[in-house]
């Protein structure tokens, strides 16, 4: 074998390059998700171990959605609803800027509840649980659920001047770690919501994100105005539809014209999967 032949043999094929791209993207995303999840879990453990000291942040205080929950009260009275702190406003403002700049990778790369759902989805496949396919028409209608939840949360947060959603919030129920340190203190509604999310997301990928997450609803609207969005290159696209398969939120990327739906969570799985660099 000549030196040239060996060099050609060592050069990865297009399929190998694509596989490498998929692997690298997934690895980067999983490590980022893990990093942020660890931060939230450490905060939750510290808060549970020293609940009255006031030195450690609760998981409520580290959620940017708190800014949405208190926004109307803050703008009209200058005060925050109970259990919401300036940190929520800072994180909410940062997320607003980030989303307007770069779309919605927050849900795909940062949100710890999204990471939990990704983990459960993988677990479901490993356990050979059935994958529930929501019919396209029903899927489109169910996605409005996020805005219904958002309207309810804002309405009740303003009228009660407290963190009304806390009793129903799966983020708080799962990542607040009350189930580990103080099970008796958990709200029944929160346990039910968490159970629905945990079981449901092992059957439907990112169930909460697709149909119920109020923050996802806000980010979906904001993403429409963002500078960076994944766009399908119609000239390069071969309509192979490979990009549709890995999408965690079930978007039909192959029919994007040209920008991908604002419901995109920016995970980049479709981009990495594309064999012809069509996006």
């Amino acid at each position: 074998m000549s030196i040239d032949e060996r060099a050609v043999r060592r050069r990865p094929t297009k399929a190998q390059q694509r596989k490498g791209r998929i692997r690298n993207t997934l690895l980067a995303r999983r490590l980022t998700q893990l990093g942020f999840a660890v931060v939230i879990i450490v905060a939750a453990v510290r808060h549970q171990l020293e609940p009255t000291a006031g030195t450690s942040a609760s998981v409520d205080a580290l959620c940017p959605f708190g800014a949405m929950e208190t926004l109307i009260t803050w703008l009209t009275t200058g005060t925050l609803i109970s259990r919401i702190h300036p940190s929520n406003l800072v994180l909410g403002g940062a997320l607003l800027i980030a989303t307007l700049l770069a779309g919605n990778p927050f849900c795909g790369w940062i949100c710890p509840l999204g990471s939990v759902q990704d983990l459960l989805w993988r677990l479901g496949r490993w356990l050979h649980l059935p994958e529930l396919k929501v019919p396209t028409r029903l899927d489109k209608q169910l996605r409005w659920g996020r805005y219904v939840v958002l309207a309810l949360v804002i309405c009740f947060s303003v009228s009660t001047a407290k963190l009304w959603f806390a009793d129903y919030d799966p983020y708080l129920a799962i990542l607040g770690l009350d189930w580990l340190f103080n099970p008796g203190g958990m709200a029944v509604a929160g346990i039910i919501t968490a159970a629905v999310v945990l079981v449901g997301s092992s059957l439907v990928n990112r169930l909460w994100c697709r149909y119920l997450c109020p923050l996802g609803g806000v980010l979906s609207v904001l993403s429409r105005f963002s500078f960076l969005r994944i766009r399908r290159n119609e000239n390069a696209c071969t309509d192979c539809t490979l990009c549709d398969r890995p999408c965690p939120v079930g978007l039909q990327v192959s029919t994007a014209a040209p920008a991908v739906s604002a419901d995109c969570i920016g995970c980049l799985d479709c981009v990495a999967t594309c064999p012809s660099k069509g996006r």
Binding site: A28, P86, S87, V90, A94, I97, L101, P105, I110, I230
Partner: peptide, 26 residues
């Protein structure tokens, strides 16, 4: 680019908020 921008902005939020005196978690 997109995930990098979002991750950097979110990571900077707390230190920038602290430096500006806006950051309080309790």
């Amino acid at each position: 680019w997109a995930p990098a921008v979002v991750v950097v902005v979110m990571l900077l939020a707390a230190p920038v908020g602290q430096a500006a005196g806006w950051w309080s978690t309790s």
